[in-house]
Design a protein around this nucleic acid. Sequence first.
DNA 1: GATCGCGGCTAAACCGCTTTAGTAAATCGG
DNA 2: CCGATTTACTAAAGCGGTTTAGCCGCGATC
Lengths: 348, 348
Amino acid sequence: MSRVTIADVASAAGVSKTAVSFAFNNPDKLGQATLERVLGVAHDLGYAPHPAARALSMRRSGTIGLLVPQPLSMVFANPFLSELIQGLGELCEQHDLTLLLVPPLDGSLEDAVRQAPVDGFISLGLTPDDRALAILDRLGIPTVIVDSEGSPKHPVVNVDDRGGAEAAAGHLLELGHRRLAIIVLPPTRGHSGTTATAARRMAGYLAAIEKAGAPPPQTVTAEVSTAAGAGAFQAMANGRQPPTGVLAMSDMAAIGVMSAALAAGLSVPGDLSVVGYDDIPMAAWTNPALTTVHQPIVEKGRHAARLLIRRMKGEKVESPSPLSTRLIVRGSTSAPWRSAKEVVGPRA
Amino acid sequence: MSRVTIADVASAAGVSKTAVSFAFNNPDKLGQATLERVLGVAHDLGYAPHPAARALSMRRSGTIGLLVPQPLSMVFANPFLSELIQGLGELCEQHDLTLLLVPPLDGSLEDAVRQAPVDGFISLGLTPDDRALAILDRLGIPTVIVDSEGSPKHPVVNVDDRGGAEAAAGHLLELGHRRLAIIVLPPTRGHSGTTATAARRMAGYLAAIEKAGAPPPQTVTAEVSTAAGAGAFQAMANGRQPPTGVLAMSDMAAIGVMSAALAAGLSVPGDLSVVGYDDIPMAAWTNPALTTVHQPIVEKGRHAARLLIRRMKGEKVESPSPLSTRLIVRGSTSAPWRSAKEVVGPRA
DNA sequence: GATCGCGGCTAAACCGCTTTAGTAAATCGG
DNA sequence: CCGATTTACTAAAGCGGTTTAGCCGCGATC
């Protein structure tokens, strides 16, 4: 009926619980004969150590948590997470760890964090002063932060968001665009208004625009989905000075903009150039293929996991310098038609 | 230094451990005054119940496991999993559960399963006679199987793979295609040679082909990636009777085929029609957009989680009937050119 | 020949929580 | 005013492992 315990094995094999435990964790301490007998009995009985009991007594669960700021149903709509997990996964496998997904519990990340039976956390998109992180500190659970601001207390893994954005905007400006629109990432958790990532990308865009002496861009916020991107297109196409170039902080939104533009009879990139951010796999396959800023997401996951594992071993680790981003020019950007005409025939 | 325990709170508040436990789990059993005092002290001390201790004593951990047959780094390359998790996630949130990803441990799913501290499992693509499932039974951990054969022991969630495949093949055949190629899903775990899903899809394809009296198709195996799809195209384009239509068991492979065909100077769908399977988000955005069989992946996740949760409550549940699939015709399929010409101008 | 060391094993403490059984005081019905 | 409940709380027994300390017998050491 009930699960077979170490005591059952012990009595069936005629030894102490200690002996059974040794058989699994410390075989050298047992004589050859007893060892084999115990393992045999354990196998016959279908014994497996109860993970919770083991975790309690060993003070480690063999699990690391991935702290995500939104419900699973939302956060996995973004391909970003899949890629990050691929990176985390590689390291988890190497170190025999499993990955627990930890979304807010009834809206509260604090509660979720308290209940998670993990040896360490990787937190995604949380500001370093988030209350959930403070709780982790008090509980003594090592944590690595991804996509956030620099922090004195935790190692942080970031990419060069600003540089990537600057390259993206620079690209459009060089092509001759002047009226730009920026599609901003939505804030994920109340406290910060806008995430650190969004802020850095924005700074990059604005720096390039200012440097080029172009007028200040229009901004629209859209969550990471094609639907939201399409909505953003509607919002900005209605003005009397619609942009000729769009800088989106996510590929999903960028793709939504493109499709809405095409559906509205515009040509992309002729009437509207659009550049995304992240370089998710889908970006290479759209029509036209999306010009976007590549960031090494899988690599980011690997780095984060590597740092966390070292911290869990007790090592002190430093935040690495931001991973580099780079602009991938594909088919969704070109010189704006109108200005092209103006150049070709001055008085067309 | 060390984590603050229930005993610390108890002594600080001048009550017994029981009282502290009651304060959190059974507040009615305490007087108003003591309750407040205990909660206050607990908060000041930053107390959080140790999850493993809790799990041990309550015999439930509040997490469910997702058993995947391959390493995380591989399995998340397939967008399928993201969608499934969106569905699972919805139910997890409603029931305050977290999700543990359980890939093979050092290549062994059996070991992984034994060590996972979960209240229930959702297993992906495992045959009902897999050894890992037998272990779960012995441990008394309720399990729901997704994408597998029917099983007497476990509830199974499936979609109408066969019907979808039949529709896909029927579509190409109606368009006039006769020389078809099928791109088969790779086996994931040794024992079954080919997965149940792949077998059902294959049966559907073949049934339609036979019914139409078309010649038997060429088959190539390709894993779920665009690269593998491109490779499959090379493999079949080299024959002296290359197919005019490709039936792929995954969208990723289908997209790979399309891109390789285009790169080789063929026209899609003119020279080659291709239809995928799954209808992942990407399929709608490729150029041309991919004709594919839609399966309700998110819904599948919801169903599986719902069944599991009911089993965890001790209810007996039946496997639901397969969810329906449907063909989505987009731009990657048309009548083959050659036959079109023949029809238009008999002696062109 | 007493001492030491060591291989092989066990008893018991411990990890940190929940929960059952029970006690003492307060409340109640009659 | 007395027995019966109810209220407010606690001691202690689990949950199922790991680990420390120690026991016992035996060949090697000096």
